[in-house]
Simulated scan of single mutants.
Amino acid sequence: MNLLNNAITAAILAGEEIIKVYDSRDFEVELKSDNSPLTKADKKAHLKITEVLSKTGIPILSEEGKHIEFDKRNEWEFFWLVDPLDGTKEFIKRNGEFTVNIALIKEGQPVMGVIYTPVTSTLYYGDLTIGAFKTKVEEIPVGEEIKFKSVDRLPCEKAVKYTIIASRSHLSVETEAIIEEKRKEFGDIDIISKGSSLKLCLVAEGSADYYPRLGPTMEWDTAAGHAIALASGCKVIRHDNKEPMTYNKENLLNPWFEVYR
Rank of each mutant, 00 (worst) to 15 (best):
G143V: 08
K66M: 07
L81K: 07
W76D: 13
L3W: 13
V203R: 09
I189P: 01
G215F: 13
R213M: 12
D23P: 04
D34K: 03
T99E: 10
A229G: 00
F91Q: 07
E185G: 01
G233H: 14
I58A: 02
W80L: 14
A208G: 13
E28Y: 12
E107R: 11
N74Q: 14
M112H: 02
P118F: 02
L214C: 13
F70D: 08
I178C: 15
N251G: 00
K249H: 14
V114C: 08
K242S: 08
E219Q: 12
P118E: 13
R238G: 06
D127I: 09
I18H: 05
P110Y: 05
I8M: 10
V100W: 08
E157V: 02
H226I: 04
E243S: 14
I191C: 10
V52L: 10
K149Y: 08
I237N: 10
S172N: 09
I189N: 05
K43W: 03
V259R: 02
A227V: 03
G87S: 14
A132V: 12
K182N: 10
S54N: 04
G15E: 07
V173R: 06
G57A: 14
H170K: 00
P110T: 04
L253Y: 12
E139M: 08
K182I: 00
P216K: 09
L253C: 02
A208R: 01
M245P: 00
K72S: 11
N2I: 12
V100L: 03
K249S: 11
P244R: 05
Y260H: 02
K161P: 04
L53W: 06
N101V: 09
E28C: 15
I92C: 01
K72Q: 14
F79D: 07
E138Q: 14
E250H: 09
I58Q: 10
N101C: 10
G87K: 03
V236A: 04
I12G: 03
F133N: 15
K161E: 06
K134D: 06
C234Y: 06
K106S: 12
K235Y: 14
K136C: 12
L53Q: 11
K184T: 00
K147L: 02
V119L: 15
T163K: 02
F91M: 13
M245G: 01
L202S: 14
G187Y: 09
I146G: 11
K89Y: 11
E16M: 09
N95Q: 05
Y211L: 08
L230Y: 01
R168Q: 14
A231H: 10
M245K: 00
L61D: 09
E107D: 15
D240N: 05
L198V: 04
L253F: 00
K199C: 03
I102S: 05
A224E: 06
P84W: 13
T175Y: 04
L3Q: 12
Y125D: 11
G195T: 00
I18P: 06
I68M: 09
D190M: 07
G113P: 04
E174P: 00
K136S: 13
V203F: 06
N101I: 03
A14V: 01
E75C: 09
V119F: 01
N95L: 12
R261K: 07
Y125K: 10
D240C: 02
E51I: 08
I130C: 15
F148S: 08
F27R: 10
F186M: 09
D209L: 00
E180Y: 04
